[in-house]
Amino acid sequence: MLDDWLSLPEQRPDLSHQPGKCPVPNNRQRPPRGSRPKPKGPRPVANKPREDGPQRIAKLLARAGVASRREVERMIAEGRIAIDGETLDTPATLLDNLNGVTVDGNPVKKPAPTKLFRFYKPKGCLTAAHDPKGRPTIYDRLPQGLPRLMPVGRLDYNTEGLLLMTNDGGLKRQLELPATGVERTYRARAFGEVSQEQLESLAEGITIEGVRYGSIDANLERSTGHNKWIQLTLAEGKNREVRNVLGHLGLEVSRLIRTAYGPFTVEGIEPGQIREIDRNELFHFRRTLK
């Protein structure tokens, strides 16, 4: 399928360290900042919540697939969540489990086994549950009979390709965090002039209108006249990142396809189709996450 895309008709569309006045013990000078070796391993996180103790209710409900944490907080503000019949008024509530918790008067079911799906999001639909303007959403494209699924990240209205979907709010959040380092790969068809050297400079990151975009591995795959096919791999996925970065280089993107998210690709599925990822494959993938 990816080779077919390439054959489609072209369209135009820090401060240096300042030593203090106090003497350093043993008459030794403090080494300049940046010259000291960094400690190995992840930085300790203060007051990191224990996974086996009480958890914030928003986190528990997200893991149960009720909604994302932010959506749960809105539901609490709307008075839709209660514990033992008493309406909850703060998302800071800590619980060991969801016994006695109701949403819109209905008991919360025990969390279902985690599932992850590959969905080919078509161009021309929103990654949202609904749209006030009445535009189609991904849920209008999904087939009937699926469990309640949440998208992992977003693809904008005119971007197509791989969108992971899950019933586990905890997994959704983990995959979305830049700190997790899951790479996303895109193919962009763009009009304009750009060199491989310009694309390689994106590996150092770039700041555009005050927004800092991290390292991007970009390669020119094919060039026909002013039309280019470019592959980009990144680990942040900020809003409209690929379009903004290529636009900054003077390119006009006419088609954008996400082809991979981590080890999962769009191969074998057509626009609007969805496929569940094998449980063993999901298990081994989760063991690789930070």
Rank of each mutant, 00 (worst) to 15 (best):
N167E: 09
Y157V: 02
M75E: 09
Q273A: 12
K59V: 11
S35E: 14
L2E: 09
E221T: 03
V66A: 03
R28H: 11
N239T: 12
N227F: 14
P136A: 15
T265H: 04
L164V: 04
L60F: 08
D140M: 07
Q231H: 00
D84A: 05
P42R: 14
R118F: 01
T102V: 05
C125M: 14
I81M: 08
L282K: 08
A112E: 15
N99I: 07
L177D: 11
L98P: 06
A58V: 13
T185E: 15
K40Q: 13
G268E: 13
I277D: 05
P23F: 05
N97E: 04
E281Y: 04
S16V: 13
L246S: 06
Y139W: 02
G65D: 07
Y157P: 02
V66K: 00
G205N: 06
D104C: 03
M1G: 08
I83R: 13
H226T: 12
V211Y: 03
G247C: 08
K59Q: 13
L234H: 02
L60N: 07
P54T: 14
K21C: 05
D3P: 09
A112F: 06
D14A: 10
L164Q: 07
P54N: 07
R28V: 14
R12N: 12
R63H: 15
N227K: 01
T90H: 11
M165V: 03
A62W: 06
D96K: 10
Q196N: 13
K290H: 14
P113K: 11
R63Q: 15
R56M: 08
S254P: 02
Y120F: 15
I138F: 04
S223M: 11
Y261W: 05
K172C: 15
R275S: 14
L149K: 10
P42E: 13
G20D: 12
H130D: 11
P54L: 09
P113M: 01
R69C: 08
L249Q: 06
E71W: 01
N106Y: 07
D168N: 15
G237I: 00
G134L: 02
I81P: 10
Y186V: 01
F264K: 05
W229F: 06
P39Y: 07
P122C: 07
L163Y: 01
P143C: 02
R243I: 02
H226D: 12
I257D: 00
E270C: 08
I57F: 07
A112M: 10
F117T: 03
V101T: 02
A67E: 02
G153N: 02
K133Q: 15
M75T: 01
A129N: 01
P143D: 08
A112G: 10
W229A: 05
L61Q: 11
D104I: 00
P178H: 06
